[in-house]
Simulated scan of single mutants.
Amino acid sequence: MQSAASSRPFVGVVLVIGSCLSLPFGAAVAAQLFPVLGPWGATSLRIVIAALLLLVIVRPRPRRWSRPQWVAAVLFGVSLAVMNGFFYAAIDRIPLGPAVAIEFLGPLVLAAVLTRRLTDALWVGVALAGMALLGIDGLIGAEPLDPLGVLFILIAAGFWIMYIRMSARVGALIPGADGLAIGLLVASVLLLPVGVPASITVAAAPDLLLLAAITAVLSSVIPYAFELAALRRLPQRVFGVLLSLEPAFATLAGWLMLGQDATALRMLAVALVIAASVGTTLGIRHERGPFTAPVPLPD
C-alpha cells in the first residue's frame, strides 16, 4: 500500500494537470467579455468575483498574521494582478495557444535556474525547443503574432515567475487557503481603477455577469487553489516544467471554443512541451530520500 509521503508527488502532479485544464478554458470564456469590457476590465471583474467567493468560503483571519505572512500575501496579490492583466491584454491580440506557450517561458526560466539534475536540464531543453518552434510559427505562419501582444505576454511571463515563488511562499507560511483569499483581495484593490467601469457595464447585463463568474471559477478559484496545494507537494523546478502542459490545453481550448487554427508546427511544439512534462513527472519517482519541499524565500 502506498504511503502518504510517497503519494504526495503524485497528488501534486494531478493538481497541476487540473490547473492546466481549467485555466485555458476559463481564458477562452473570458475572451468573450473583451469586446464589451476590454481585457483589463474582464481581468478586474474575474479577480473581484473570485476574491468574494473565496472570502465567503474560506473566511480568512489575518489579524494575527506576522509581518512575513502579510508581505508574502501582498506580493502574491501584486503578482496575480499584473500577471493576469497583461495575459488578458495579450490574448486580446494573439491566439490563446501561442500566448500561453510564450508565457510559459517564465516557469521554464525558473525551472532552469532551480534545476540541479542533468535529466531535469534536458527536459527543460526539450520544452525550450517547443517554445522556439512556437516562435518560428508565429513569425512565418499565415497569421504572424502581433508584436505588442508578444510584449504583453512576455511581461506576464515575468510576473508568472513571481507568482510561482510567492505562491510557494504563501503556501509555506499561511495555512489553508487564507493566503490565496487575501492575495486575491489585494489584486482586486490594485485593479479597482479598471474594475469600476466594468462593474457598471455588467450591472446592466446579467449575461455578462454569468460569463465573468464562470471565468472567475475556471481561471482563478480552481487553478490557484490547485497550484497552491501542488506547491506544498512539489519542488518549484518540477512544478515549473509540469506547467508546460498548459500550452497544449490552451491550443485545444482555442480550437474548440474560439475557432483558432492549430498548425502542424504549432502541434509539434505542443508535443515537445508535453514530452518535457511527462519526462519530468516520471523523473520524480527516481529521486532518492524524502521528497523535496518548495524552496522558501528569504524573509
Rank of each mutant, 00 (worst) to 15 (best):
M1L: 10
Q2L: 14
R8E: 15
V11H: 07
V14F: 08
C20T: 14
C20R: 00
S22N: 13
A28C: 14
S44A: 15
L45N: 01
I47V: 15
L53T: 10
P60K: 01
Q69A: 13
A73D: 06
V78Q: 07
L80V: 14
N84G: 14
Y88W: 06
I102S: 05
I102C: 06
L108M: 11
R117M: 06
D120Y: 00
G135Y: 04
G141I: 00
L148W: 10
G149T: 06
G149P: 11
I153N: 06
A168Q: 02
A172P: 10
L173S: 12
G176A: 04
D178I: 04
A187N: 05
L190F: 01
G195T: 09
V196N: 11
T201V: 12
A212Q: 08
A213P: 02
A216M: 09
L218F: 15
L218V: 12
Y224T: 05
L228Y: 00
A229P: 00
A230R: 00
L231N: 02
Q236I: 08
Q236F: 00
G240W: 12
V241L: 12
V241W: 01
L245M: 13
L252I: 15
G254I: 14
M257Y: 10
L258V: 05
G259S: 09
A264H: 09
R266A: 14
L268R: 01
A269G: 15
A271T: 12
G289S: 08
T292M: 10
D299N: 12
